[in-house]
Amino acid sequence: TRVETATETAWISLVTALHLVLGLSAVLGLLLLRWQFPAHYRRLRHALW
């Protein structure tokens, strides 16, 4: 049971790290898009909202 718990903890930390990385890359990508294509971003936002 001790090994299982350790594996579970490792998986949880791995998944958390993955989610953090994905979230950060998504935010960075959005910022980059907004910085590179302001007109396109505004049009996209206008279409979405």
Score class of each variant (00 low, 15 high):
Q36L: 07
S25F: 09
R45K: 15
L48A: 05
R43H: 07
R42Y: 11
V21N: 00
L31V: 13
V27A: 10
H46L: 07
T7S: 11
W11P: 04
L32F: 11
Q36H: 06
A47C: 10
T9P: 14
L44Y: 05
L22V: 13
A26S: 13
A10R: 12
F37K: 02
H46E: 10
A47F: 09
S13C: 15
H46A: 05
F37W: 10
Y41A: 14
A10S: 10
A6L: 06
W49T: 01
A17L: 10
P38I: 09
V3K: 00
P38V: 06
T9Y: 11
R42K: 13
H19D: 01
L31Y: 12
A39F: 07
A17M: 07
V21T: 11
T7Q: 10
R45M: 04
L44A: 09
S25P: 05
V27D: 01
Y41L: 13
Y41H: 04
R45A: 08
L48D: 02
L31N: 01
G23I: 15
V15I: 12
S13K: 11
L18P: 04
T1M: 13
W35T: 12
L14C: 13
V21S: 15
V21A: 13
V27T: 09
L14N: 07
L33D: 01
A17R: 03
T1Y: 11
R45N: 03
I12V: 10
S13V: 15
E8K: 01
E8L: 03
A47I: 08
V21H: 01
Y41P: 02
R2L: 13
H19F: 15
L22A: 10
L32T: 05
T16S: 08
S25H: 08
R34M: 09
H46D: 06
R2K: 14
A26F: 10
A17H: 02
W49K: 08
Y41V: 14
L44T: 03
H19M: 15
R42T: 09
P38T: 06
A47L: 07
L44W: 07
L48K: 01
L20M: 09
L24V: 13
H46C: 14
T5P: 00
L31Q: 03
T9A: 15
L33R: 03
A39S: 13
